[in-house]
Design a protein around this nucleic acid. Sequence first.
DNA 1: GTTCTAGAAC
DNA 2: GTTCTAGAAC
Length: 210
Amino acid sequence: MSLAGASPSSATKRTADTNVTNGASAVKKGGGHWSTALTSAVEDESVQVYKDDLCTIINDKYPKAKHHMLAMPNEYIANLKSLTSAHVPLLKHMLQVGKETAMKLRKAGDSSDEFRYGYHAIPSLSLLHMHIISQDFKSDCLKTKKHWNSFTTSYFMDAEDVIDELQTHGQVQVDSAPFYRLLEQELTCHRCQGKFRTMPKLKEHIDQHR
DNA sequence: GTTCTAGAAC
DNA sequence: GTTCTAGAAC
Ligand SMILES: Nc1ncnc2c1ncn2[C@@H]1O[C@H](COP(=O)(O)O)[C@@H](O)[C@H]1O
Ligand SMILES: [Zn+2]
C-alpha cells in the first residue's frame, strides 16, 4: 500500500516525436522500434500501390475503412513539424496522385467511393504519411474511440488545409493539448451526428448508412 | 456472466 | 501503431 502510491508517473504520450528517443543510434532507417514501421513498409514492393520519383503509396496494414492507403515522400520527413514552404510542391503532388489512385478504386455509388485525404495532427508513426481513406469506415480494424475520433474529428487535418497553412505560415503549427482532447470526445456519427456510448453501438449504426 | 474499455508492453 | 488482458460497466 505504501509503495504503490509513491510510484512516479512517467506517463509519456506515445507519439512519433517521443517514441524514438531511445539512444543516439539511427532508428530512422527502421531500427526495429514499432514507431518506425513505415520506413520499412514503404520499401516493401508487395504493399506498394503507386510509386514515382517523389512519393510512394502503400496499403495501410490495418485499414480503418474498405479503402485505406498511405502516401509518403521518398525522402525522409519525420512529421508535420519538419515541413517548410519548400515542401509545398511535394505535398501537392502527394495529394494529386493520392486522389488519382483513389479514383481508380471507385465502383458502386456507396460511401466507399468517397474519400478524404489528410494527416493525423499527432501521428504515432514517424515518416510523414497522408491518409487516403474511404468514408464507409467499415473495417474490423476500426476498434477504438481513438481510431474513430482520429479520422472523424478535426484531429484529421485535410491535406488542403495543411498545404494552405504551409504556404501562408511556412510551417504547420500543431498545438497538441486541444487535439488530445478531441480523441476523448463522445462517439459521434460522421453522417448524422448521432451519439453513441460504445464502439460496437457506433459500428452497428454506421453499417446502416450508405 | 458477458461486454467493453483502457493501459502496460523493458 | 497493435496486442493482450484486468477489471469496469452493463
Ligand atoms: N507496418 C505497417 N504498414 C503499413 N501501415 C501501418 C503499419 N503499422 C501501422 N500502420 C498504419 O499506419 C497508420 C499510422 O497512424 P498515424 O501515425 O496515427 O497516422 C495507421 O493507419 C496504421 O493502421
Ligand atoms: Zn449516423
